[in-house]
Computed example of a mutant assay.
Amino acid sequence: MKKTTPKSRSVTVSDVAREAKVSKATAARALGGYGTVSEKAHEDVMAAAKALDYRPNELARSMTTGKSGIIGVVVGDIENPFFSLAVRGISDAARAAGFNVILANSGEQIEAEKAAVRLLIGKRVDGLIVTPSESRDVTHLRDIHRSGRPLALLDRALPDLDVDTVTVDDRDVAIRATRILVNAGHRHIAYVTAVDAEGHELRDLSQIYTSSVRERIEGFLAVCHDAGITDPKRHVRLGATSPEETRRIATGLLSTPDRPTAILASDSLIGLELFKVIQALGLSVPGDISLITFHDADWTSVTSPPITVVDQPVYALGKSVAELLIRRLKGETRPPERLILPTSIIERGSVGPPPEEVTGGSRTKPSSD
């Protein structure tokens, strides 16, 4: 009676080789997809592997071939629908090219990002895709680049790091979104973002270390200054890092006598909490507060009214950055690329004229003319 390998231990390459009646080296080459193996030996090895339910040891294979077939990905917040959809694009492109993906979450914290990078390198990933949480501390990213592992950046560029990068034009789209509010007559406009700083208030753009956030605020402030809005920084709020914090910030912002008549939210999670607070305070969109949010999340089209959004090509961002990295992994050498994907604004029903006009420093109801 033919002996079978006990199920109490993992099936090894030696077990497969014995079953296929080939040498261990031949079995390893067939299973690892490297070197030269005859067609018959390859068929025998694969049949034996299937019969024994062989599961490859990825670490051992990576030590033999120098390749793990794995791409490491570090994003800012996996709960954010933006990153979820981007990772879907990365995963689809990776799978189509024969790679697997390991995902890590930084929580937009630089130390957590560094730890995630160390972990992924320890897993012997072939290359990394990172959404950098800030631009002032990139030593760990330089180390990846120097190690010979390809690195690509998702959504946020680093001017001092010359690697493949895929972004949108954050400054330009923030300008377009803010102009919609200004053209509707708004002069008290707020911008709310998750990036934190002491006091949650913007004193200077040097506080902002995340490139995409800084570019959006730059665009927002530029339009406000062009419209003659006095001190637009006073309505910029930082630190909307959780639903609870966002609600606290929104409640404070909307409970002041000088409350904004329009808000631009930096992502759909913040936009949703703002919408809830507006309703909880007995205010209406757009009657009392006009609202625009980045990212066309599912909820934005089913509220009453539906929300005007900055529609970013999120899936394409993920797919494109993965494709750039995979080209590197397959040996292509070329200068680093920066792809800037186009965005659009979907105008719905959440923007209207301000409920009041500012005249001589005080608020008055607009005339009915």
Rank of each mutant, 00 (worst) to 15 (best):
K7W: 03
E19K: 14
A20E: 02
A30L: 01
G32R: 06
Y34W: 13
A48W: 04
L52Y: 12
Y54N: 04
E58Y: 02
L59Q: 11
G66A: 08
I78A: 04
N80L: 08
P81M: 10
L85T: 13
I90P: 04
R95D: 04
A96L: 11
N100K: 07
L103S: 03
S106R: 04
I110G: 03
I110M: 07
E113Y: 04
G122M: 02
G127S: 06
R136Q: 09
H145R: 15
R146F: 10
L154E: 10
L154W: 08
D155L: 03
V163A: 04
D164E: 01
R179G: 00
V182R: 12
N183K: 14
H186S: 09
I189A: 11
V192R: 09
V192D: 12
A197K: 12
E198N: 07
G199D: 10
R203Y: 01
T210G: 05
S212E: 10
R214S: 12
E215L: 14
I249L: 15
I263P: 12
D267W: 05
I278W: 03
L281P: 04
L283Q: 02
V285A: 06
F294S: 07
V309T: 15
Q312C: 02
V321Y: 05
I346C: 13
G352T: 09
P355T: 03
E356A: 14
G361K: 05
K365G: 02
S368V: 13
